[in-house]
Amino acid sequence: CRGTGKNKTSHILLISVHGTPYWMAPEVINESGYGRKSDIWSIGCTVFEMATGKPPLASMDRLAAMFYIGAHRGLMPSLPDHFSGKAVDFVHVCLTRNQHERPSAVQLLQHPFMKGRQ
């Protein structure tokens, strides 16, 4: 059942989507076939939050962040300049919009950011 009004549509969308929008991959929001690589997106958001104290797009309300991520238009924020290039790149590759281009967990373990931690 789809609502025709904006409020009803937004309400249905919020009920049908499970999870926290700030960490949701575009394919999860768009319900376009998601899997393990969707979790890689969430890892990138988690590392971002661990580094900065807030998830990406925290300045937006939840619904706005969800639409922003799902729209495939906006760039996700990167870590501030005072973080290492390895950390910045790690988050960047995790937040690759196209899930087919996003690295797997095995590939991420080979990333220089992770290699420096072993």
Rank of each mutant, 00 (worst) to 15 (best):
Q110M: 04
P26D: 06
H82S: 06
S32C: 09
E31N: 14
Y34T: 10
M114L: 05
D39H: 10
G116T: 03
V47H: 08
H11T: 14
L57R: 05
L109E: 02
I43Y: 13
V28I: 15
A58K: 04
Y34V: 08
I29W: 04
A51C: 12
S104E: 02
A64D: 14
A71V: 02
V106S: 14
Y68M: 10
T9D: 07
I40Q: 04
P112R: 04
L75A: 12
R102I: 09
R102H: 13
I43M: 12
P112H: 05
L79W: 02
V91S: 07
S104G: 07
E101V: 01
A64S: 15
P55R: 06
P26M: 11
H72S: 11
A71Q: 10
A51W: 02
R117C: 14
M60P: 00
L75F: 02
R62K: 12
F113Q: 05
M76H: 12
L109D: 10
E49I: 06
Q99Y: 12
V17F: 07
G74A: 10
C94H: 05
K86E: 15
S42K: 07
R102G: 14
Y34N: 05
F113G: 14
V47I: 06
T9Q: 03
V93K: 01
R117F: 10
S59Y: 12
K54H: 13
H72I: 02
L57K: 00
G19Q: 07
P26Q: 06
I40M: 09
R73F: 12
M24F: 01
I69T: 14
S84C: 05
S32M: 05
I69P: 01
N30W: 01
S16Q: 12
A58D: 15
A51M: 11
E27W: 11
G44N: 00
P112Y: 06
T20L: 07
L79C: 06
W23C: 08
R117P: 13
F113I: 00
A64M: 08
T52N: 05
L63F: 09
G53L: 06
A87W: 03
V91G: 12
S84I: 02
E27A: 09
T20V: 05
V17G: 10
E27F: 11
A51K: 01
M76L: 15
R102S: 14
P21Q: 09
T9L: 08
F83C: 06
V17T: 15
A105M: 13
V91Y: 03
P21N: 12
V28L: 15
